[in-house]
């Protein structure tokens, strides 16, 4: 149950500085908290509330709106099997039943070893590659039952390199100070960008 650690707090301040208003950074910061702890803790939400200058209730309001933020621990690998139309037409239900059987958990459950949490998900923007699933939001395409078995085996053995739940992009945006234009609160901007020719700034 933790607040952001010192390194992440620094990162958080860097992210906040990219936005004209601090609250805009809330979703990226919640991801950062989830990356640190695997899920979102109350302490983290209180910390983020301090960082962006809102109440913890407002942080919870935002956090709980978005499905990717988990308020309770999940497995190391979150397996989301898509069940929307294109996948449903091509065997999503069967794949989901197979997954429940193989992992030994019902939808929403986590395996005893804490490795896998199984969820039924909505459309993952891979409709031509149905049925599809995601492991920690990385796609697997045209998944057959035997593909699924192999995936689970590879994840268990470490043969597949997928970062733990909470980590999304392994590359962070970095805006070098000497290249950054900088964010200014909107109420402090009174004119057009300096580079815009005056006749254009109508």
């Amino acid at each position: 149950m933790s607040r952001l650690n010192a390194g992440n707090e620094m990162l958080a301040r860097e992210i906040i500085a990219r936005y004209p208003l601090p609250k805009s950074a809330l979703i990226p910061l919640l991801h950062l908290a989830q990356e640190q702890d695997g899920h979102i803790t109350n302490d983290a939400m209180e910390h983020l509330a301090e960082l962006v200058g809102v109440t913890p209730a407002e942080v919870l309001g935002t956090c709980s709106f978005y499905e990717m933020f988990k308020l309770a621990p999940t497995g190391r690998y979150l397996v989301n099997i898509c069940g929307t139309m294109s996948c449903q037409l091509l065997g999503a239900d069967e794949l989901l039943h197979h997954a429940e059987h193989v992992l030994g958990v019902a939808v929403g459950g986590t395996t005893d070893d804490g490795r896998f949490t199984l969820e039924k998900a909505e459309c993952q923007a891979a409709c031509t590659e149905a049925p599809c699933l995601q492991v920690n939001y990385r796609h697997e395409y045209r998944v057959t039952p035997s593909d699924f078995d192999r995936l689970v085996a590879d994840l268990r053995s470490g043969a597949r390199d997928i970062p733990e739940h909470g980590t999304l992009s392994r590359v962070r945006q970095h805006i070098p100070a000497n290249r950054s234009v900088g964010a200014v609160p909107p109420q402090q901007v009174t004119g057009p960008p300096e580079w815009l020719p005056t006749e254009e700034a109508k």
Partner: peptide, 29 residues
């Protein structure tokens, strides 16, 4: 692109300056 001068302050030496901030969502259609 930032490092190569295509994004950020003074793009391609033209004076044109713009920050492109990567933002990402959290699951809500």
């Amino acid at each position: 692109a930032y490092a190569a001068g295509y994004v950020g302050r003074n793009v391609l030496g033209s004076g044109f300056s713009v920050d492109i901030v990567l933002h990402w969502g959290a699951g809500a259609y």
